[in-house]
Design a protein around this nucleic acid. Structure first.
Lengths: 112, 112
DNA sequence: CTTGCATATGTAGAATACATAGGTATAATA
DNA sequence: TATTATACCTATGTATTCTACATATGCAAG
């Protein structure tokens, strides 16, 4: 994941959660996932293909996503991903975890 | 860094910033840094020594921290770290970056 | 019709950071 | 005296991600 002209470190570990979240909005193929993440984040995040596709396979292997070849609106073959029930639970857990972490980080950053 | 009974992924990349921030509060030795991070985060974060000391050396190598052997209040020798000017700039940059990232992450998580 | 672009998926190799697990040594305390 | 808390350190393994590359299709412009 790239942050335009910025350090990317903070994103480590969030990719899976962000992908799960985008898929949770409805079945999508990989390419569209990276576009949506970029759009919603107002161009701050840009998921590289070399990060995205391994991540999708990883999430599928873990049973959090299921995949199916379908046609896109433009008539092309693409692999559409859907969130499984297990994936939804995982997403919820990760979101709770993220909130706790970001809160604790802010606690430390605010300390004087 | 450990999160009690939770996933640690989200912390990746934040360790340096948190360490810089704690050192910014005043000169401290490594062992105390890990304790403060744990205290301030209300036991959510627990920095392992195998993560902390390499991180301190990394930050020192980059010129963000300077180190000096002194005596602790209990009369023991310990390596006290101070934030350099370069380190302060780095910390400020990382904090700005973190805020942007966490905001963008929330943007995506909130999307419906 | 062919050139180029956006779309779409994938892998190999390297970099990085962190955790695990081990080690040394001293002061305090039981 | 033995154990615990303090205080430092490194070697190794692993997971994630980036860089770079490879492949292929649909469509529009010329």
């Amino acid at each position: 994941m790239i942050m335009s002209e910025q350090k990317t470190e903070f994103l480590k570990g969030t990719l899976d959660m962000l992908v799960l979240k985008v898929v949770a909005l409805g079945p999508v193929h990989g390419y569209a996932i990276s576009q949506r993440i970029q759009q919603i984040s107002r161009d701050l995040f840009q998921v590289q293909q070399g990060s995205l596709y391994p991540a999708l396979h990883r999430l599928e292997d873990r049973g959090w996503l299921s995949a199916e070849w379908r046609q896109t609106e433009t008539g092309r073959e693409a692999k559409f991903y859907t969130l499984t029930r297990k994936g939804r639970k995982q997403l919820e857990a990760e979101m709770r975890s993220w909130e706790q972490v970001s809160e604790a980080v802010f606690l430390i950053l605010r300390t004087e």
